[in-house]
Every structure is written in structure tokens, then in C-alpha cells.
Design a protein around this nucleic acid. Structure first.
Length: 488
RNA sequence: GGUCGGAUGGCCGAGCGGCUAGGCACGGGUCUGCAAAACCCUUUACAGCGGUUCGAAUCCGCUUCCGACCUCCA
């Protein structure tokens, strides 16, 4: 498989560090608010990657953290701890806030059919590991304490290593630009160099979340948690580190610096970054007020939405774009995804009832099977995979209409393509009202009555039944072999 | 100001030197009491200007727009 490595800015052939085992670390959410659309892309993309690796026979350990240590809020909020701030507003304990939003996040992940991480470590549960790692870095002379805080010494590090390998940033540029847009950060004057970043921050008295450390009461810096937890669960060197492009700098750059400082080598072999979801061409951000909560999408309760969309529609929508490009969100785009996914599902449900022939079948499906594998191997090109699946749906329909024929073997291949790639790798599972118990009987009575009305050419009545059922969410279809129904 | 990405048909989105995805919407048809569903057909788009090439949406240069990031804010 070819995969784009941000570290080299090139497509590389994926080779796991140890045979048949893959370690993946993905930066998880900071749980200080309900999940929004932007939170959804990364988990889906890396879920697909994980599932594809599993399909290829790899044993995957997938670690996704929960950041429940609040970090400093930006300029407007006077450096108050994010979680602590929200806690005051809501009159809750910080950990209660973190727990509630962690649950909300995981619930969304479940509904979107994102596999649970193998390990889901919390930052607050790994304070000791973080402190130990900071100590190691200090011992190596690459960090220093100042007034109860510890900073990473970027200049010292850069004299032996390259600070900027990942993001392509040059230290001089950073300094040059620093005066321009940079905010006035607390404790800036304690640093030896403005580029130094915090490993540990001294906590002020009103800071709710704080821990004892060799440097006094405080809390860990933003970047150190991922370094400490990935090393703890995946080792000092692991295969894949994933995250959003917005984390590339400074977060991932700092992770590399910290890990390299502590362990003498770069932590991850492949760095994979997905692009952002935009609304009207702009990144979704709280500060821009254009965020759509995932719950709102599922309920339709947002001015930008004409209706509610299902979790699988969202997933399909995300997968219809390549992970490295931005994806522009709109109601129309979601609607298109919903209709497309629905059509594909309808066709795939037909497979079991397809008639087969012994020989001389006019329809074959090998090319699709191969095409999908090629697309997946080509930097996880899910839009192409979906295009192939639509072609498969088309062929199924043609066979179903009796205009083409397939052998039993082809039918099995079709089933395995759907099973392995659509349900498996893409993680698209059928969505219909599973709870139809008793409904069948009631419905057959209605349809019988309607059938009678039709025989009597009482169109008014038959249409009335059909329309009324449609209002309630049941669609009636008159086919050649009788009438069928399904939940919309 | 610095760094890095983009600009593709009505919309969303692949493609990244020749074979010109896919979905949705639109139009025509088959089927149908009418619908729905399904199938078939139709529609040659790549910001602008130069250049390289037998050949460019794809490579190079310039221009114009747009976006992301720039240190404690996924």
C-alpha cells in the first residue's frame, strides 16, 4: 500500500516495523464541548485505514487519547483553563464535564460505526509518565525550569536535531513572524527563546486542575501527553501517527522534538494528516460561530440543514472525498450523499435474490474487485472505491432486471466485495429500522386491502393508503412480482 | 510578514501528460393505472495569461482569487 507521509512529503510504500503488527496513534479530542462536524473526519479516516490493515492480516493496536487536561484558552480568555472555565459556567466538576463530553464523543463514534480504540488513554491518568518524560528531557539538557514551569529548549535541540522536520518550518522564519500575529502569552518572558514551548506549567491558585511535580504544583503542557502516552502503549517507535492538518504545527512538530529529545529517535515512521471540513470554504471553528454539532446533524436542528441526516450518511459523505483534500460541507452535498448511499444499499440488498446461470454469464466483476484494491492501495482513495461500488450496484441492477447474467461464483465474489470493502473497510453498514417485529403482519393486511382496491380499480383508495403510509415513513413500491415496502 | 495547500461542469468531488471517474440535480426514454424504484440514453468542465510537448485539467512561469498554520488554542 502506498501512503502519503507528511514527514517526507511523498507517497511511500507502507511497511510495518514488525511483521504483521501495526501500532497507530491518533490525537483524540479535547473534551470540553460537544462533538462537532470537524471532530468526525479524523476518526472515520483512520478507522478506514485501520480496517484496511486488519483486512490485510495485520494485527493493529489503535490508540486514541482523550485530552481531559484543560489547556489554556487563547487570547480572549485570559489564559484560564478550558475545562475549568466550562466547569464554572456549568457548575460542574471538571472531571464531570470531561466525562460527559467523552461519553458524547464516544456515542457519536459508535453510531458512525467507528471501531473503539484498542486503548483510549486519558491525559489525567498519565501525569506520572509525563513528568518522567519531562525529567528525562531536562537531564539531557534540552529543557529548563523557570519559575515553576518547564520549557523545551528549542535552540539547544535544534543545534543537533532539526526542529521543523515535519512542518517544514525554519526557526528563523518563526522568529521573524512571531512579532506579527502572535498573541501575548502568559510567561513569555520566562523563556530563553520565544520559540520554546511549555512542557509543564506552574498553576495559579485558581487553576482547578493541578498536580504536584518536582517543580511545584502545575499541569502538563499541551504536547507532552501524546508523546508520553504513545510511548507507553506503542513503544518509543511505532508505525503510524495520525491527526488533523491543523495539528501539524506546533503539536506534532513538538511531539517529534520531545520524543527525539527523550528517546534519541523520532517516534513515528509514518505521519498521516487528514484535511479539514469547511463550511462555505472556511474551517469550522467555535470562534467563527459556524460550527455544526454532530447531534444537530442527526436531528436536523440547525439553520444550515434542511433535514436530519443519518450517521451512515455522514460517514459516506466524508468518504466520498479524499482524506487529504478539504471537504466542503453543505446541505446539498449531504443530501447527495444520502441519496447515493440509499441507492447503493437498495442494489446491494438485491444480491441474495439474484438468479444465477451455470455458464456463459455476461456479467463479471473481477475488474471491480481489483479496482477497489488498487484504489485503496493508492493512498486510501476512498472516493474511487465508492465509484467502483456504484459500478457494482449498476451491474447488480442490470442482472436483477434480467438483462445480464452471472454465475454462482460471481455472485459470491459480489457478496465478498460488499462484505470486505463496503461493510468492512469503508465501514458502511446497512441502516434500516431493524425493529420490524409485528409490523410485517400489520403491513401485509394493509397491502392486501390496497391490492383489492387496485383490482377494483379504486385508485383513489389505493393511492390514499400509499400516501398515508409514506407520511408515516413507509414506502410502497409496486413491482412485477407484487408489492413491497420499506422504511424510508 | 513567513510557511504550506487549493482553484475541475448547476452542486459535491476523483483524476495529476494521451484512454477525458463517481454521486446528486437536469433533460429524453423503457416500465407503470398513476407514482416510486430500477435500467438505458443525453450533456466534454478543468481560474486567467504565457511557455514546454506530437499531445496539458495534468509539467514550468507569471497573474488573480481562496484557505490553513505561524508556540502553549483538536
Amino acid at each position: 500500500m502506498q501512503i502519503y507521509n507528511t514527514l517526507s512529503r511523498k507517497l511511500e510504500t507502507f511497511e510495518s516495523i514488525s511483521p504483521k503488527h501495526v501500532g497507530i496513534y491518533v490525537c483524540g479530542p479535547t473534551v470540553y464541548g460537544p462533538p462537532h462536524l470537524g471532530h468526525v473526519r479524523g476518526p472515520i479516516v483512520f478507522d478506514v485505514l485501520r480496517k484496511y490493515l486488519i483486512l490485510q492480516g495485520y494485527k493493529v493496536r489503535f490508540v486514541r487519547n482523550i485530552t481531559d487536561v484543560g489547556h489554556l484558552v487563547g487570547d480572549a480568555d485570559e489564559g484560564e483553563d478550558k475545562l475549568a472555565k466550562q466547569a464554572k459556567v456549568e457548575q460542574l466538576e471538571p472531571m464531570e464535564v470531561a466525562q460527559a463530553y467523552t461519553d458524547a464523543y464516544n456515542s457519536v463514534m459508535d453510531r458512525m460505526n467507528v471501531m473503539k480504540p484498542s486503548i483510549e488513554p486519558r491525559a489525567t491518568g498519565h501525569i506520572i509518565e509525563q513528568i518522567e518524560m519531562i525529567q528525562t528531557i531536562i537531564e539531557k539538557g534540552l529543557a529548563y525550569e523557570a519559575n515553576g514551569s518547564v520549557y523545551f529548549d528549542v535552540m539547544a535541540y535544534n543545534s543537533h536535531q532539526h526542529y521543523g522536520v515535519l512542518s517544514g518550518r525554519v526557526l528563523e522564519d518563526l522568529q521573524a513572524g512571531a512579532g506579527n500575529q502572535s498573541r501575548s502569552l502568559e510567561g513569555q518572558d520566562e523563556k530563553r527563546n520565544p520559540n520554546d514551548f511549555a512542557l509543564w506549567k506552574r498553576a495559579s491558585a485558581e487553576h482547578i486542575m493541578q498536580w504536584s511535580s518536582p517543580w511545584g504544583k502545575g499541569f502538563p503542557g499541551w504536547h507532552i501527553e501524546c508523546s508520553a502516552m504513545s510511548a507507553r502503549y506503542l513503544g518509543e517507535q511505532f508505525d503510524i501517527h495520525g491527526g488533523g492538518m491543523d495539528l501539524l504545527f506546533p503539536h506534532h512538530e513538538c511531539e517529534i522534538a520531545q520524543s527525539t529529545a527523550a528517546h534519541n529517535h523520532s517516534p513515528a515512521k509514518y505521519w498521516i494528516h487528514h484535511n479539514m471540513i469547511t463550511i462555505n470554504g472556511q474551517k469550522m471553528a467555535k470562534s467563527l460561530g459556524n460550527g455544526i454539532m454532530v447531534e444537530q446533524l442527526f436531528s436536523g436542528d440547525n439553520p444550515l440543514l434542511a433535514q436530519a441526516y443519518s450517521p451512515m450518511t455522514l460517514r459516506f459523505f466524508v468518504l466520498q472525498a479524499h482524506y487529504r483534500g478539504t471537504l466542503d460541507f453543505s446541505n446539498d452535498a449531504l443530501l447527495a450523499a444520502q441519496k447515493g448511499w440509499s441507492r447503493m444499499q437498495t442494489a446491494f440488498k438485491l444480491v441474495d435474490s439474484l438468479q444465477t446461470v451455470k455458464a456463459d454469464a455476461s456479467c463479471n466483476v473481477e475488474d471491480i474487485d481489483l479496482g477497489i484494491q488498487e484504489s485503496l492501495n493508492d493512498d486510501l482513495n476512498t472516493p474511487q472505491v465508492i465509484a467502483h461500488l456504484f459500478e457494482l450496484a449498476r451491474r447488480i441492477n442490470v442482472v436483477n432486471d434480467g438483462k445480464d447474467s452471472i454465475t454462482e461464483a460471481t455472485k459470491l465474489t459480489i457478496k465478498s466485495i460488499i462484505h470486505d470493502y463496503c461493510e468492512g473497510v469503508l465501514g458502511m453498514k446497512a441502516e434500516d429500522g431493524a425493529d420490524n417485529s409485528g409490523l410485517e403482519d400489520a403491513m401485509s393486511i394493509l397491502l392486501e386491502l390496497r391490492g383489492k382496491a387496485k383490482t377494483d380499480k379504486n385508485w383513489a383508495l389505493s393511492d390514499q393508503i400509499r400516501d398515508a403510509l409514506k407520511d408515516k415513513g413507509f414506502e410502497i413500491k409496486d413491482g412485477k412480482e407484487g408489492t413491497t415496502w420499506n422504511k424510508i
